[in-house]
Simulated scan of single mutants.
Amino acid sequence: MEENWHALDKDSVISLLKTDQFAGLSAHEFQSRLAALGYNELVEKQKTPLWKMLLTQFQDFMVLVLLGATLVSAFLGEYSDAVTIMAIVVVNAILGFVQEYRAEKSLEALKQLTAPFSRVIRGGIEQKVPARELVPGDIIVIEAGDRLPADGRLIEAVNLEIEEAALTGESVPVRKTADRVYTWDTGLGDQKNMVFVGTSVTRGRGIAVLTATGMGTEMGRIAGMIQAAEEQDTPLQRRLDQLGKYLVWGCLGVCGVVVLTGIVRGESIFLMAMSGISLAVA
């Protein structure tokens, strides 16, 4: 259930999440929610195999043209030209591969922001559990030095300050409060009654009821957008690709004219064909 939790008072949040401020969830209720909602972790889509990622670097039109030029140069005995062109193709492929590989690692960087363990109140007992075993409705205890394991609504805050640079870009720790209620359209950085996964407590202590875990958190939404984003060529890249095709076809046209002109003038067909190929490669 997705709500504007920051726009509700803490009692309403606790009521909607069907939990208890002091006792937390029962063991049975926790197991039921865990089975229904899954673990508190970022879900990663199937990775692109490294070999496939590398192979895609050779599918560009101009790269295929250069590979063809390499073969023709080698066939004509112009080995220095063939080596030079191949070196250009390989360097271009390596750069593209490294860029895509780093993009694939972006989700892993987000995962490193999550806390490994958390203190939670269940059945009236405070206990330390793996952060992946948290569910909405859990009551967590936080203090200076802790990293937030999920998103939550504060129900108690004592001199609590949280550094949220990883999420909002705000370089100064934010003073939090449990008693304020904000309008539904309040921005993420101004929701001072909320805590978010991946942020760190720099001062004070507090208690929060978890409102979202895993891919339902703000960090989870970011991870989802990263994985759903499709790579698109920029307008400049599209124009350069189009220009490259024009140049290739124009070059082939000029070479064809040269070959035909030589043949008309009585030159050897084989000689003119080799001259046209050499000119195209050049």
Rank of each mutant, 00 (worst) to 15 (best):
E133D: 15
T114K: 15
R119D: 15
R102M: 14
V120E: 11
Y101D: 15
G137R: 05
V91C: 04
G96V: 04
I94W: 13
M86C: 15
L110E: 02
M86W: 10
V135W: 05
G137Y: 02
G137D: 07
Q112N: 11
Y101R: 15
K111H: 06
I125P: 06
F117M: 13
S106H: 12
A103R: 07
A93F: 00
A131S: 15
V120Q: 08
M86I: 13
G123R: 10
Y101I: 05
S118K: 03
E100K: 10
G137L: 00
G124H: 04
L113N: 08
V135M: 08
R132P: 05
A131I: 02
I88G: 06
L107V: 14
R122W: 04
R119W: 10
L113P: 00
S118A: 12
L95M: 13
S106G: 12
A131Y: 09
V129A: 08
F117C: 06
T114P: 08
R132V: 01
L110A: 10
F117S: 13
I121Y: 00
E104K: 08
P136F: 07
L107C: 09
Q99D: 05
A109V: 06
G124T: 02
M86L: 15
K128I: 12
V89I: 13
I88T: 14
K111S: 05
N92L: 01
V120W: 09
I94G: 15
A87E: 13
A115Y: 03
A93P: 01
L110Q: 02
V90W: 01
Q127Y: 00
P116A: 02
V129E: 15
A115I: 05
L95Y: 06
E108F: 04
G137S: 11
A93M: 01
K111G: 11
A115V: 08
K105Q: 11
R119A: 12
L113E: 07
V135A: 10
Q127H: 00
P116K: 04
S106R: 09
L95I: 14
R122G: 03
A109Y: 03
F97R: 07
Q112M: 13
I94E: 14
N92T: 07
I125N: 12
V89F: 04
I121N: 03
K111P: 04
A87G: 14
F117I: 06
R122M: 02
L107R: 01
A103L: 06
A93L: 02
V135E: 12
V90G: 10
I88L: 14
A93S: 11
V90P: 08
A87N: 12
V129L: 13
Q127D: 00
Q112W: 06
V129S: 05
Y101S: 15
A115Q: 04
K105E: 14
R122H: 02
G96R: 06
V91R: 08
V129G: 05
L110T: 09
E126Y: 00
F97Y: 12
E104M: 07
P136I: 10
R122Y: 03
F117H: 13
G137P: 06
E133H: 09
P116F: 00
S118W: 05
R119G: 12
V120A: 04
Q99N: 05
